[in-house]
Amino acid sequence: MDASGIERVPEGPVRRMLTAANRHDLEGMMSEFAEDYRNTTPVHPARSFTGSAQVRKNWTALFAGLPDLTLTVHDAATGPDGKLWMEWSNRGTRPDGSVQCAAGVAIFTLRNERIAAAQFYLEPVDHDSGDVNQAVSEAVQGAVGGDRP
């Protein structure tokens, strides 16, 4: 198993997209997305979008701003509905030398051998946000500036 873990992902468009991403091959990545691709970001609804043009814009910025960006797949499974669930992370160095790391899950919907949609749960890794007791306390009591339904 190589360090990227991409072989955990079944053969198909998601695996090809990840392989292209680790090569920083934007055109290779884009060939795996449906033109009407829909990205839903439930934790940050305003970040949801439709269309592969936004995928291109996002990855162009990521490759430019994080020139050593790498993606790692930690686990993957195909659900009974054919959706591909993937736990993954990424890491890259910004021009100022600081490191950006994110981790989470993406749930992909495939259509006609293309990535048609994703439920996207990728968040920056935060090593300084407190322990589990603090997190539960903030969930119950609310954090300063926290969201209210």
Rank of each mutant, 00 (worst) to 15 (best):
T93R: 02
V99Q: 09
G130M: 00
L84D: 00
T41Q: 13
V140Q: 03
G28W: 11
Y37C: 09
A143G: 10
L26Y: 07
S4P: 14
M86D: 13
G130D: 05
V55R: 03
L110M: 11
P45K: 01
L71W: 15
E11R: 04
P80R: 11
T93S: 03
R91G: 02
P95S: 08
A64W: 04
L84R: 03
I6Y: 01
V132Y: 10
L18N: 01
L71N: 04
E35R: 03
R8V: 05
D131Q: 10
G104T: 00
R91D: 04
D36I: 09
W59K: 03
G97F: 05
N39S: 15
E7M: 07
G79A: 15
A143I: 04
N22A: 04
D2R: 07
A135F: 12
D81M: 08
Q141F: 04
T72V: 15
Y37I: 06
S31L: 11
E113C: 01
L66H: 05
D96T: 07
V55Q: 03
S52I: 10
D25N: 09
A21S: 08
M30W: 03
G130Y: 13
E27I: 10
A143W: 12
H24C: 00
R38E: 15
G28H: 13
A106M: 11
G5E: 04
T41Y: 05
M86W: 03
P95T: 08
T60G: 05
A106S: 13
A46H: 12
N22Q: 09
P13A: 14
F49L: 08
T19R: 00
D126E: 09
Q100W: 00
Q134D: 12
F33L: 10
S137D: 11
A77W: 06
G142I: 06
D131N: 15
E27W: 07
G12I: 08
K83M: 14
P42A: 08
T60A: 12
P13H: 11
D147P: 08
P149K: 05
R23G: 07
D131M: 10
A21P: 00
S48Y: 05
A53N: 01
T70N: 03
R16H: 05
S129D: 07
N133R: 11
L122S: 05
R56P: 07
R114Y: 09
A143T: 08
T70G: 06
F120H: 09
V144N: 06
A34Y: 06
T60R: 09
D2S: 12
P42T: 10
N22H: 01
E123A: 12
R94V: 04
G130I: 01
S52Q: 12
E11I: 11
L84W: 06
A53F: 04
A3V: 14
T93N: 00
E87I: 06
G97W: 02
V43H: 09
